[in-house]
């Protein structure tokens, strides 16, 4: 499967400026997936054995709301990477992942990739770099959302 997926994998922004050998290692753990709109793709607390490279469509990260139902907290679109739980113990999903629209994506097998990381620290470090950037971006976005940006002139409250 890896041999056939590799050329289309390369087109995803995640693989930009990545060495060929690294891409080959990852493509060995990749498969094509497709979800219809509304599909619960991953459930909070369940084993996080994969992450997604979205080719087309919109995935939403959701959390059960204390008031019942779920709150949609962030969305990801074409070209985005979704899921870092596969890399961080205890390897459980930290949120629900739901397809907002029809989604075509690559699913990358996290267990498979974790093994490769363990066996090849250089590869492992490359993965860590990319996913720590992803986590930092998400954290930054979350912080901005917490600031309730639009509700005032965002004046300093701690001089």
């Amino acid at each position: 499967m890896s041999t056939t997926l590799e050329p289309i994998l390369r087109k995803h922004p995640f693989f930009a400026e990545m060495e060929d050998a690294t891409i080959q290692l990852i493509s060995g753990c990749a498969k094509n997936v497709r979800y219809r709109a509304g599909k619960l793709v991953a459930k909070q607390g369940t084993p996080a054995d994969e992450f997604f490279l979205i080719r087309e469509g919109r995935l939403a990260m959701e959390m059960p709301s204390p008031l019942g139902g779920t709150q949609r907290l962030q969305t990801a679109d074409d070209g985005d990477v979704v899921g870092w739980s596969w890399l961080v113990p205890p390897y459980h999903w930290h949120f629900d992942l739901r397809a907002v629209s029809e989604v075509r994506a690559f699913s990358i097998d996290g267990r498979c990739l974790r093994n490769k990381c363990e066996n090849d620290p250089r590869f492992g470090y490359e993965m860590m770099k990319r996913f720590s950037t992803l986590m930092a971006d998400r954290l930054e976005a979350t912080r901005l959302q917490l600031m309730d940006l639009y509700c005032g002139p965002a004046l300093p409250t701690i001089p």
Binding site: C151, G152, P153, A154, L155, P159
Partner: peptide, 8 residues
Amino acid sequence: MHGGSARQ
């Protein structure tokens, strides 16, 4: 302004 003073 609503939300506070710019120079606190």
